[in-house]
């Protein structure tokens, strides 16, 4: 009986399709729940920073608030402005949301817990994250509104600029690992927590985190939707679930970049101390804790820092991060080569 089931799920195309679908759901459903609760945690953290209580009415401690908000977004009417480009206006939020989800296919949650264990995992993530800009820029253009359009242009310039420095950060990590596979990246960081790449590559970790803030359009780089100048930026004209998809996509992207930070710099599923009580905790729990830690810093910065001006943002990206990260790539390569620490091919 069991043998039949195993052969059905490993050889039959229908069985394989069912397994594939189940794997996708096993990643997507917890992710969406995490996104819902990320909005709740975000609001609670800001509330604490501003000495308020935050959402506390719907359910115990306000825990059902995200679902109430979600229900509200679903039930409202989707308004398409009469001068907007109808097809692109609807497609744009779908692109924004979808690109945030498909990237999770290559993220390793634990040893061997990956949907697609491909050899070019990092490049895949980088490619998908560079697609996120299309949702925003198409939304800005299709809305046929000046605020949306200005927001979209800003966002396109911003995301393209900061991708460059993220690319160099990825290259330094790759130099130390010698593989583009994300599971290999994590395996290269086994051992104590000072073996993780955050310490040897500390400046790169800082640059990565700041670029991640810019890449996800979060404060202090939330110029695409800066409400004081542009109403709500690229999603000014969006309502109901079309807005909801942008919102979910933004939070899914934040979680994705936190996961990438955890994989590249915080040792993925490894426990901080490689001895008994710590190693008994499943790796996926450590991974989730590291993501949660990075997400907390996301909320913390949002509660603390004022918004950058546009020229300052561009100067930081091109005149500070680009030279520093380029220099660090050369330095890392030199140290690895002349120190004899190059990873074996």
């Amino acid at each position: 009986m069991y043998a039949d089931l195993i052969t059905f799920f490993t050889t039959n195309w229908l069985g394989m399709a069912i397994v594939m679908l189940a794997q996708c759901l096993a990643v997507t459903v917890p992710l969406l729940v995490a996104v819902a609760y990320m909005t709740y945690v975000d609001r609670k953290v800001w509330a604490s920073i501003q000495l308020r209580r935050g959402p506390n009415v719907v359910g115990p401690f306000g825990l059902l608030q995200p679902f109430a908000d979600g229900l509200k977004l679903v039930l409202k009417e989707t308004i398409v402005p009469s001068s907007a480009n109808g097809v692109l206006f609807i497609i744009a939020p779908m692109i924004a949301f979808m690109t945030a989800l498909v990237a999770w296919a290559v993220v390793p949650f634990d040893d061997g817990w990956v949907i697609a264990d491909i050899n070019v995992g990092i490049l895949y993530l980088f490619a998908i994250s560079s697609l996120g800009v299309y949702g925003i820029i198409i939304a800005g253009w299709a809305s046929n509104s000046k605020y949306a359009f200005l927001g979209a242009l800003r966002s396109a310039a911003q995301m393209v600029s900061y991708e460059v420095s993220i690319g160099f950060v990825l290259i330094t990590v790759l130099l130390c690992v010698g593989s583009l596979n994300l599971s290999q990246v994590v395996l290269a960081q086994s051992g104590w927590f000072w073996n993780w790449f955050w310490l040897p590559l500390l400046p790169m970790f800082v640059i990565f985190f700041i670029s991640a803030l810019a890449e996800t359009n979060r404060t202090p780089f939330d110029l695409p939707m800066s409400e004081a100048e542009l109403v709500a930026g690229f999603h000014t004209e969006y309502s109901a679930m079309t807005f909801g998809l942008f919102f979910l996509g933004e939070y899914a992207n934040m979680i994705l970049l936190s996961a990438l930070g955890a994989v590249l710099f915080l040792g993925g599923w490894h426990s901080p101390i490689p001895y008994a009580p710590f190693t008994l905790v499943p790796g996926v729990v450590w991974f989730a804790l590291k993501i949660a830690f990075l997400l907390f810093i996301f909320s913390w910065t949002k509660g603390t820092l004022p918004r950058y001006r546009y020229d300052q943002l561009m100067r930081l990206g091109w005149k500070v991060f680009l030279p520093v990260s380029l220099g660090w790539v050369v330095l890392t390569a030199a140290v690895l080569t002349f120190g004899g620490w190059l990873p074996k091919p």
Partner: peptide
Amino acid sequence: EFIAMILVIVYVGAVAVLFLFVVMM
């Protein structure tokens, strides 16, 4: 797979964004 990813990163992620940028404006 390497060339496929580079094609997406360079052409879709950077070149086409700038095309779109210019054409829209």
